[in-house]
Amino acid sequence: MADQPTATERFVQGILPENPVYRQLLGLCSTLAVTNGLKPALTMAGAVGFVLLSANVIISLIRNLLKPHLRIVVFTLIIAAFVTMVDRFLAAYMYSMSKALGPYIPLIIVNCIIICRCEVCASRQSVFTAAADAVGQTAGFALALVSIAAVRELLGTGALAGVRVLPAAWPDWVVMVLPPGAFLTFGLLLALVNWVAARRGGGG
């Protein structure tokens, strides 16, 4: 295990160099669907963070018991259990947000970020490293969601997190909060990230 990244490396890599959304193109369903405002984006990032952290810790604890051909099934069932908890929690304490996010909370189960992190990191490394990895990836995911959501909400409604910041003369570009805006904003931001990465020689 000498060549495995340490906890700190895992944490740092998750935020920018291996950002789950911009660099690995994982978890795009939720990325596109919940970024019509900052609040749903942050809620989604929190939900994914909780599930990712819990699943990574549990899988790292049982990693010596996993049989190779059954591991994906085990991952999925553990994730589904935690997603059920998040779903019930949101329905109990943040009912309107739970309604607004609708099916995208249960769809965290098939979010590739979590299965990918379980496979790449948690099933091979210690609990502490797996937890650091989960926190780093969550930070990267939240960063990506917030950047997309900020652009869409600002241009689409002239507000940030529900507070109006642009002058009333701003003609709201409603299309930005509708589905096409998600594709366009994410496509343009992705190109921007690629451009910056190429200029800094980070490959891309």
Binding site: G181, F183, A191, N194
Partner: peptide, 8 residues
Amino acid sequence: AITLIIGG
């Protein structure tokens, strides 16, 4: 990136 923009 271009795929996403076409998707939009």
